[in-house]
Write a protein that binds this DNA or RNA. Structure first.
Lengths: 187, 187
DNA sequence: ATCAAAACTAAACGATTGTTTAGATATTTT
DNA sequence: AAAATATCTAAACAATCGTTTAGTTTTGAT
């Protein structure tokens, strides 16, 4: 064996994630990552292979952070109410980490173009349909929609969530609250 | 006087706008702009000063394209119904120009970070509040909300619009339809 | 204590970024 | 026709991009 790493990968990835979260993929440079992660370019490449690799790990880190909220939703016995709670929980999560950062997933979905990295695109679509599935399961708990109505409501809610996450950087908390309340008023 | 320009500024800006629309600000390079606009870098700088200048003009071009839909909404005698029509009109607009491009305004709002160009940020916030104002005026035409309720509905709708525009790149037309229908079902 | 291997520092890589400049070309006015 | 001037081409600018490499330092096993 040989020398030990002077850093913990999960720790430096969290710092990288925050940088990507704040600035987006393109704007974030390796130079900025070096500074924020506190390690040399060599170490970054040794651990994560490429800038894209750092970003993919950052997305996993972000998803893991959201997982607590999603688990809470999944384990709730309530239906629509628990989804509404998730919307508010997400706003708190987004706000508490650092005001105005919005959501790394939707930020990325909105930033990348058609010919972006396929692996990144897959992470985004997979996560989106996973959350949609959780919404659908929650809807089934409480009320008795028809199967088509269920899918429509699930579509409605996943897009509402996606929209809220996107909008959370642009709008005031009071406006976001109005949005959530109206979204669930007549569901 | 001297030699005449071999291009029309409004024409090359429209091409630039389409490039920004497709790829975002950061990903779009001067090299790509040269190719797409069909003119030399020198000419681009002579006409627009900088990459940022090209982008600002592109945003104006995009707003001008949306203006037809907004005028239609403003001139309509109906209230909520006309806003719903605007939502559908926007989807058609976004789709007909080139499938999956979404909205240049929300794309930009989602891409840029905190320390982005102030002028760009102003264009985004100004346009957003302008559209919100138009929504509010439409709401006043039909029903008799209280003033606070009116503002809440306006907040709801502008965020719903922002969200729809953001989501239009990620979701299927049928899903977006579900979103619009549910959005206006309970207004 | 020595040797081998992994992790570090730091410099350099070619490519590309946005921007500028020098020189050739074309057009209008005198 | 000639002088003036704006527009063009094309090359170069310094700076930064993501990535690699050479050389040094530290560690664990023999």
């Amino acid at each position: 064996m040989a020398r030990k790493k002077a850093y913990i990968e999960s720790e430096v990835i969290e710092k990288a994630m925050n940088l990507f979260w704040r600035n987006g993929y393109e704007t974030t440079s390796m130079q900025m990552l070096e500074k924020e992660m506190g390690i040399n370019k060599f170490s970054i490449y040794a651990s994560f292979g490429s800038k894209n690799g750092v970003f993919l790990e950052s997305l996993e880190c972000y998803k893991a952070k959201l997982n607590g909220l999603l688990t809470k939703l999944k384990e709730s016995e309530k239906g629509v109410t628990s989804i509404k709670t998730y919307f508010y929980d997400f706003l708190d999560f987004s706000k508490n980490n650092e005001f105005g950062k919005g959501c790394l997933i939707t930020n990325t979905a909105n930033e990348i173009g058609e010919d972006a990295d396929a692996e990144i695109k897959k992470v985004l679509t997979d996560f989106t349909s996973e959350v949609r599935g959780i919404f659908k399961e929650s809807l089934q708990k409480e009320t008795s929609f028809s199967q088509t109505s269920l899918n429509q409501k699930a579509d409605y809610l996943i897009i509402a969530m996606f929209g809220l996450a996107s909008a959370s950087r642009m709008f005031q908390p009071s406006q976001l609250k109005s949005y959530i309340e109206n979204t669930f008023d007549n569901l």
